[in-house]
Nucleic acid binder design. Structure first.
Lengths: 350, 350
DNA sequence: CGAGGCGTAGCAAGCGCTTTCTACTGGGGA
DNA sequence: TCCCCAGTAGAAAGCGCTTGCTACGCCTCG
């Protein structure tokens, strides 16, 4: 049957306790004994029983990463960065921790389910990425869950999500979506655009609201009226950008610029414009958000706001592992950088 | 302190055994008793201890997914698909299984480490994606590990990787990389191209070799000499495509087409051509592989081979959960579909 | 020469759950 | 009326590991 610690102990002629200590390396063991034990481990092809070990030690080496959609590079990049920092010393046997990437699909129910699952596994840490749902009951439920996770000893880090009042000891690395949105629209207004369409993300999400608010702030500051007909909501996908662009064109033929909720949506917008025979930025300028890797390969290259996804994820990972100090107050704002490229230009003259 | 089964039992005035049975739902419990137990669970905010439960039951609800790079949509899409099928009935408490996505970075050492970690956790199943390393010792080590995982009760599914002799009971869903490569180059040759550059992936990987072999097969079938100077190797990234394209142009100014190892590499190639002032496909045709979502948004849209990543991942997930029959012989080949788009055309006339 | 330490190793008590086996009920058939 | 069985609940034995405490040398210092 399966080899247990006791088998190894027997073969090495030591007690199980000694084997455990050799494996965990947190207690002095004579070199000769250690050798003998390690050889026995090797001979028997022994693999530690994780659950048993977690139970006895009341800790686990699982780190949960919650993402909306792992197929979206926005989340993939963050998840990858978190994971790259998850490993390393300070841990238990092997020093390796496992990252559990959980796909919530943006649904608060699934988010809650996964948090419970992670709590069940006594996860060492949990990193929650992506914007939050702005629904009071859900927010409270998730906040409560996060607090309980924290109480149970898991370190909780929010990455790209505003802090939750309900989970005071969770560290939050928040993206400056509002500021980014503001700068993007400022840029377009500066070029002379006045009729700017906005393709927002799904309603009820903090990310969507903040980016949109930045846009509106810029309009207000420039004294440009915010025509509600020029703002459309939809999911964060290409299709939404495509459809919304056609709709915007229908509503406002004099449109000279489109700001999209993110780069993927922007690509959809570009496709729609091309299909309509409009040139970018000659007829209509387009801007995205996030600066995902493919944005630079769009033709023309996409003007967008670069979010340091990798850096933010890595930092979240380090904080989750206790390898980096928490920001003061447990909150840090991560700023985006405006990347002006070919997809935006001065509006055509009438 | 933390609430345990016993606490719930006490509050519901039943034995711990009964609580366990209510939670697992695999033993008759009178409705009234169940009610009482569930209320107690709710009142106390009880969360099952995963490690303890896994230890006692000798199973776990973890499913491992090994990927080379989670930030790459190629893997993100598959991981997402696997995960979408991982959930559901047939499982234990809650019926929810957790997908553990492990980033190996393509390194066999990390691959091995993660497999050990999964073995440690007594994973219910393991899905390994991406091509294999063609290094005998490593292949043997990984094969052996997979076999032992299988012996220990984990279901093992390879997705997009050729079967391993060392792990006979692992199911393999293999991509027809050779056939896809063949069709892609056939298409180019059919258009009249004769000087075709090939930007391959890293050496020593099955994916790289198979795609390249398909290309060479097509050349041979058409009686076109395979000039070794026109094949370059590099990583699966944009940079590699960019650099290799410049090098190809240097080596062979009469080049009229470039086949890239995958879409990302192809995008790099396009960027290099644009920077050189060459038009696509007027001066040089470009083709990719995989048909990742952004490929259609390239300008011109990329000719490529569509791999049904989502379908394959979903199928792998279902097989891993025992919800779909294994293919005969444990091996199935997944074919790609040639997507002819704007980036390829007839070569310019000299 | 004896006492106190230090360096190692073992004992044994759990960690919180699952599950087998046993026990108790009430109802129906002989 | 008695027995047996179906239905339900409990007792208790682990699952394989960690770790506090104890034990045993042997060395060094007084």
């Amino acid at each position: 049957m399966t080899v247990t610690l006791a088998d190894v102990a027997a073969r090495a002629q030591v007690s199980p306790a000694t084997v455990s200590r050799v494996l965990n390396g947190n207690y002095p063991v004579a070199a000769a004994t250690r050798e003998r034990v390690l050889r026995a481990v090797d001979d028997l092809d022994y693999v530690l029983n994780g659950p048993a070990s977690s139970l006895a030690a009341a800790t686990s080496d699982l780190v949960g990463i919650l993402v909306n959609d792992i197929a979206d590079p926005f989340f993939g990049i963050m998840a990858s960065a978190v994971q790259s920092e998850i490993t390393g010393p300070g841990g238990r046997a092997g020093g390796e921790r496992m990252a559990v990437v959980c796909n919530t699909g943006g649904s608060p129910e699934r988010e809650l389910t996964y948090l419970t699952l992670l709590q069940r596994q006594r996860a060492a840490a949990v990193v929650v990425t992506g914007g939050a749902i702005e629904d009071a009951p859900h927010a409270a439920a998730i906040g409560g869950k996060l607090r309980r996770l924290g109480d149970a000893g898991s370190r909780v880090v929010l990455c790209g999500r505003p802090p939750t009042g309900a989970a005071p000891d969770a560290v939050a690395l928040t993206f400056d979506n509002r500021g980014g949105g503001r700068r993007l629209t400022d840029h377009l207004l500066g070029l002379g655009h006045r009729r700017v369409g906005y393709i927002a993300g799904p309603t009820e999400r903090t990310t969507t609201r903040h980016r949109l608010e930045g846009h509106q702030e810029a309009l207000a500051a420039a004294g440009v009226a915010d025509d509600p007909l020029l703002t459309l909501h939809g999911p964060y996908d290409r299709r939404s950008g495509y459809d919304a662009t056609l709709e915007l064109l229908r509503r406002e033929p004099r449109l000279t610029a489109i700001v999209a909720a993110n780069d993927t949506v922007a690509l959809g917008a570009c496709a729609a414009l091309r299909d309509r025979g409009l040139s970018i930025p000659g007829d209509v300028s387009v801007a995205g958000f996030d600066d995902l890797p493919f944005s630079i390969d769009a033709v023309p290259a996409l003007t967008t706001v670069r979010l340091p996804l990798h850096e933010a994820g890595a930092r979240a990972g380090r904080i989750a592992m206790g390898r980096e100090e928490e920001p003061p107050g447990g909150i840090a704002t991560v700023h985006g950088e405006l990347m002006v490229r070919g997809s935006t230009g001065a509006p055509r003259q009438h």
